[in-house]
Design a protein around this nucleic acid. Structure first.
Length: 465
RNA sequence: GUCUCCUUAGUCUAGAGGCCUAGGACAUCGCCCUCUCACGGCGACAACACGGGUUCAAAUCCCGUAGGAGACGCCA
C-alpha cells in the first residue's frame, strides 16, 4: 500500500499542542507503512501568517524528531495553480461566478435559520442569471450536489453520511481573486499525491464539502482519518489559561521531547496496557484501529510523571547539557563536574528540566537566603552542634568522604543523645537554604571541605546574633 | 437552531456477547524504606451517563433520553 501523508499547519498562530499530536500521528502512520510524511505550510491567510510562526513549526518538529520528506510545500506559492483549477471547473460548468453580496447572503441565511431549514446557497447566479451590478467583483462558487448523500469512510470515525442538501455552494475563489482554504487543500493534497488525510476532527464536516470538489475535478478521493481534539482539564478548548497550549511552551517549561511525544501518543491511542512506549515500538504498533473516537483532556500531572521517567532515563551528561540554557549562570568546569557527580540524586527528584536546573544550584553557589522553616533547626542547641562539627571538619576529625562522614555524624549524634535528623536538617539548611535536598553527606562530599565550612559558618553567623 | 460526532473512576485508557467480582496508568490517601525531599516497594479509594429492548447471557448489539463537543465564514 502506498502511503503519503501530510501535516499542514497554518502559521497564523503558535503551533498548538493538539496540532503536534496530529503531526505525530501522521508521521507514525507514514513510518509504520514505509510511506512519506510531507509538510505543507498553509500560509494563504497572509494577514495573519508570520515567518516567526513558520520558523517555530520547523523548530518544534525538529525538536520532537518528526522529520519530513522532501522540501516543505509553501501553499501561497501555488495560488496560480489553485486558480487554474477553479477556472477549469467553471469551463466544465461545475462552478460559477456569483455576484451576490455578503449582505444578501447573510439575510438569506438568517431567513433559513428562522424557518428552521438548512441553509443552502441557491442564488440566481448558480443558474447563469448574470443580471448584476457590474461594479461587483464576483466570487467563484462550486456547484454542489443538490440531492443524494455523501459518505466518508473515516479511519477513525467509521462511516459517516450526510445529506447533500446540507452542503452549500462553497466559495472557491474570493472576490479579491485569492483561492480559499477549501480549494487549496484539495488541489494541494491531490497534486502532492496524498493518500491519507489525517487531521483534527474539527475538519470532519469540511470533508464532505471537499469531497464535492474532488468529485467535480474528477480526482481520486484520499482516505480520511479525523482524530478527536484535545481539551483542557475543564473540558473547554485547551488554551493558555490552562497553563500552556502551544508546543513551544512545553519546551520552555522543561519537558523532554520524548516525554511529550509519549504523552501525546497515549492521548487517544493505546496499545493494550502499555504506557511507556519507545519511538521504535510506536512506529511498529501505530495504527488507526487503536485510535479512540472520544475527545480527551490534557492532564499535566501525567505529562509530568512521564517527564520524570524520561529524565531518569537520560544520561547525566545529556541532562547537564540540556539544562544549561535553563541556568542563569555561566558554569566553569569544576561546577559542571560537581553537578555531574550529584546528578544521579538530582535527577530522581526532578519532574522537569526547570526543576532540575533549580535543584542543581546547590552545586553552583552558597544559599543567598534561608527558608523560614530553617530557623526550626537553628536554635542555640543546633548552632552549638554545628560549631562542633565545623571544628571537627577543620581539623580533619571528620572526613568529607560521604560514607565516612555519615558514620561519624551518626556516632556524634549518638554521643550527644540527639536524633540524626536534628543535625542533618541543620546542615541541610546551612548548605542549601532549604530543608529538602539530596543526602547532606553526598552534598558535602561533592562541594568539599572548604565550601562546606564556609556555608556552615555563614549559617551559624546568620542565626547566631 | 440545523447537521455530525462522542459518553468506562478526578484524568488517560483496556474491553470486539460469557474470560469482568470490569484490567492497567496518572492523580489522591495509607504503610514500608529513610538524614529531609524525592525514588523505590506494598496497599487502599474510585467507573460501564440514564431508560428501555434483543439474548440463556450485555460495558460490549438495537432504540430512545440526557449531557458534552465540532461544523454551519469571501478563517484555516
Amino acid at each position: 500500500m502506498t502511503v503519503n501523508v501530510r501535516f499542514a499547519p497554518s502559521p497564523t498562530g503558535v503551533l498548538h499542542i493538539g496540532s503536534v499530536r496530529t503531526a505525530l500521528f501522521n508521521w507514525l502512520y507514514a513510518r509504520h507503512n514505509n510511506g512519506k510524511f510531507l509538510l505543507r505550510i498553509e500560509d494563504t491567510d497572509k494577514l495573519r501568517s508570520t515567518d516567526e510562526n513558520t520558523r517555530l513549526i520547523f523548530k518544534i518538529l525538529e525538536w520532537l524528531q518528526i522529520d519530513w520528506d522532501g522540501d516543505p510545500v509553501i501553499q501561497s506559492s501555488r495560488i496560480e495553480r489553485h486558480k487554474e483549477v477553479a477556472l477549469d471547473l467553471i469551463s466544465k460548468g461545475k462552478a460559477y461566478y456569483c455576484y451576490c453580496t455578503p449582505e444578501e447572503l447573510a439575510s438569506k441565511k438568517e431567513q433559513c435559520l428562522k424557518e428552521n431549514r438548512p441553509y443552502k446557497y441557491d442564488g440566481k447566479c448558480r443558474n447563469g442569471n448574470n443580471n448584476h451590478d457590474s461594479n461587483i467583483k464576483p466570487v467563484v462558487r462550486l456547484k454542489s450536489e443538490l440531492e443524494g448523500t455523501t459518505t466518508v469512510k473515516d479511519m477513525v470515525q467509521g462511516e459517516v453520511t450526510v445529506n447533500n442538501s446540507q452542503l452549500d455552494d462553497l466559495v472557491l475563489i474570493r472576490s479579491d481573486g485569492t483561492p480559499t482554504y477549501m480549494l487549496s487543500v484539495v488541489v494541494d493534497d491531490h497534486d502532492m499525491n496524498i493518500t491519507h488525510v489525517i487531521r483534527g476532527d474539527d475538519h470532519l464536516t469540511n470533508t464532505f464539502r471537499q469531497i464535492q470538489i474532488y468529485k467535480a475535478c474528477g480526482w481520486d478521493i484520499p482516505k480520511f482519518g479525523h482524530i478527536p481534539l484535545i481539551y483542557g482539564p475543564d473540558g473547554a478548548k485547551l488554551s493558555k489559561r490552562h497553563g500552556a497550549a502551544s508546543a513551544i511552551d512545553y519546551m520552555q517549561l522543561g519537558y523532554l521531547p520524548e516525554a511529550i511525544s509519549n504523552y501525546l501518543l497515549r492521548l487517544g491511542w493505546s496499545h493494550g496496557n502499555d504506557e511507556i512506549i519507545s519511538r521504535e515500538d510506536a512506529i511498529k504498533w501505530f495504527d488507526f484501529d487503536n485510535v479512540g473516537k472520544s475527545p480527551s483532556r490534557f492532564d499535566m500531572a501525567k505529562l509530568q510523571n512521564l517527564n520524570a521517567h524520561y529524565i531518569k532515563e537520560r544520561t547525566n551528561e545529556s541532562l547537564l547539557e540540556y539544562m544549561l540554557p535553563f541556568l542563569k549562570y555561566e558554569l566553569n568546569n569544576e561546577v559542571k563536574n560537581n553537578i555531574l557527580k550529584g546528578m544521579d540524586s538530582l535527577k530522581e527528584r526532578a519532574k522537569t528540566i526547570v526543576e532540575l536546573a533549580e535543584s542543581a544550584s546547590i552545586y553552583i553557589k552558597a544559599p543567598e537566603a534561608y527558608e523560614d522553616k530553617c530557623s526550626k533547626y537553628a536554635t542555640s542547641m543546633h548552632l552549638d552542634l554545628l560549631n562542633e562539627i565545623v571544628e571537627k571538619i577543620k581539623n580533619n576529625e571528620f572526613s568529607t568522604n560521604e560514607e565516612d562522614l555519615c558514620n561519624s555524624v551518626k556516632e556524634f549524634a549518638g554521643s550527644h543523645n540527639i536524633k540524626l535528623i536534628e543535625i542533618a536538617q541543620a546542615i541541610r539548611g546551612a548548605l542549601c537554604g532549604k530543608l529538602a535536598s539530596p543526602s547532606v553527606f553526598e552534598i558535602i562530599s561533592i562541594i568539599g571541605k572548604e565550601e562546606t565550612i564556609k556555608r556552615l559558618e555563614s549559617f551559624i553567623n546568620h542565626y547566631g546574633q
